[in-house]
Design a protein around this nucleic acid. Sequence first.
DNA 1: TAGTGGTCTAGACCACGGC
DNA 2: CCGTGGTCTAGACCACTAC
Lengths: 247, 247
Amino acid sequence: MHLPLHLFVSERLREQIINGQLQPSEQLPSEHQLMAAFGVSRITVRRAITNLVNQGLVVVQQGKGAFVKEQRKVIHSLSNPLIFYEEDMARQGVTSAIQTLVFEPVIPPPEVRSALNLESTRSKVYLQKKLLLLNGDPVGVDITYILPNLGKNYAKELQTQMTFPVLEKNGITIDRIEATLECTHADHEISQYLTVPLGSPLLVYCHTAYTVGNQPILHGKAVSRGDRLCYSVVLHRNSNRGVDNHL
Amino acid sequence: MHLPLHLFVSERLREQIINGQLQPSEQLPSEHQLMAAFGVSRITVRRAITNLVNQGLVVVQQGKGAFVKEQRKVIHSLSNPLIFYEEDMARQGVTSAIQTLVFEPVIPPPEVRSALNLESTRSKVYLQKKLLLLNGDPVGVDITYILPNLGKNYAKELQTQMTFPVLEKNGITIDRIEATLECTHADHEISQYLTVPLGSPLLVYCHTAYTVGNQPILHGKAVSRGDRLCYSVVLHRNSNRGVDNHL
DNA sequence: TAGTGGTCTAGACCACGGC
DNA sequence: CCGTGGTCTAGACCACTAC
C-alpha cells in the first residue's frame, strides 16, 4: 500500500513535530526547500502543508512562512460558571475580556422562545452578542438571549462583565443549567472573526439557565476555538439522578 | 474586496445547501459541470469542494460524486452515564454496539498512573480499547484504564457491554466523575478508523471515575466523530459548590 | 466503456513581510 | 528589493463505480 505523496510528506513532517525535532513556533522549511528535499512539485508540498494545518499542527502566515503551532488550552469550568470565571482565567495565567458587539431588544427566533417559555410571538428579549478575548485574541463568540426585565435593569453591567457574575451580584440565583456540548466547523464568516482557517474545529456550548422556580431566564450559545478552549465538569451521582426524568 | 474564486464558488454552493436548493444526500454537479458553470479551472472547482468538505457540508465518494451531507447527531447524556446508555440510544432511534479491540493488563502511562493514584510504577491495570458503533458505523474510539481487580473479575462482561452498567450491576457504585470535554482534529490513523477526512473535528471526553471513598477506579478517553455525537449535561448549583475546592 | 473523483506536474502571476 | 506564501491555469495519468 503506497501512501499518496502529499501524505508521505505531511506524515514525515508530522513525525518531526511530534517527536520534537521541530519545536513549537519554529519555522518549517520553505515550500521551495521542501520541494527540493522531497523531490516533489510545489502543489504536492502545499497539499502536505495543508494536511498539517488541517490537523492543527501548523499555522502559516503569508509572506513569513509556516510555523509549528503552540498547543495550549484554557480550561473553562462548567461546575462553577457562576462567579469565578475571571479568577479561573487568571489562575491559568490568562487575561480575559469581553467585547460586546450587540446589545438590544429583539423578537427571538422560535427555538429561543420555546427554551425561555415565552408565550407570545411578539415578546421581546435582550439579545447580546459578545466576543470573548483571551490575552487579547478573540477565541469565542457568545450569543445570549436574556429575559427583558433583566436585560433592561442590568444593561450597563451586562455589557462589560460576564453574565452570571452580574446576575449573581444582583441577587438572582441560578439553580440549574441545562447544556449541550458539541463541535462544528468554522464557516467563512466565523473564520474571519476568530482568525482561524475555514473548517477549523469549534466547540459549541449551548445552555439554558433556570432559577429556583424552574423559570428559564436566559438561553445562549457560545462558539469557541477548539484549539484554545476546553471545558471541565464534575458529575455527581446523587445530584444527577433526580433530574434525568425531566429530559 | 474580491473573494478568491474558490471561495466564491464554495460560498455559492454553500448558500444552495443552506437554503435547501440542494437537499441532504443530493448529488452536487460534477467537477466538469462546475467548471463550465462557473468558468473556472478544475483545480479551483476542487478547492471549492474541499472548502465544503472542510465545513462538513459535503462528502465525496470516488467514482460516484459529491453529495450534500446528512446532519444528524446523537445525544450522549453525561448526567446519566451509569445505566441508561443503550436505552438513551434506542430512544433516539439508533442501535448502538461496542467492539472491543484490546483488553489486556498493561503498565499504564504516567498520567494514567497519577489519575488512578497508583504508587508503584510497576503496577498493572487493564487497558481496554473499544470501537463505538452507531447503526453499524464506527463513530468513536474509547480507551479506558481500569483497576486490575475490576478488570479481572468482570473481564467477560466488560468486553461486550458498556463499562458503567457492568460496574453498577456488580454493586460498584460510582460517586463522582471528573471530566473534560474538548475537541481535536483527526490525524491520519484515526481518520481511517472513523472513515472521516483528515483533520475532521473530533470530540474528546476524558474522564476519571471515583467511588464513594474518593478512590479513582478508572480513567478513560473517548474520541468521537464531532459530526455524529454531542454531549448533554445538567449542572446544579448546590451540588457543584462544594466540589470546586478540590479542583 | 464512460463518467466520476484522486494525484501530480510545470509554470505564471499576485500579495504580503521585511530588509 | 527579495523571499515567503496565495491563487489560478492547462493538462496528464490513475483509481473507483457503474452499466
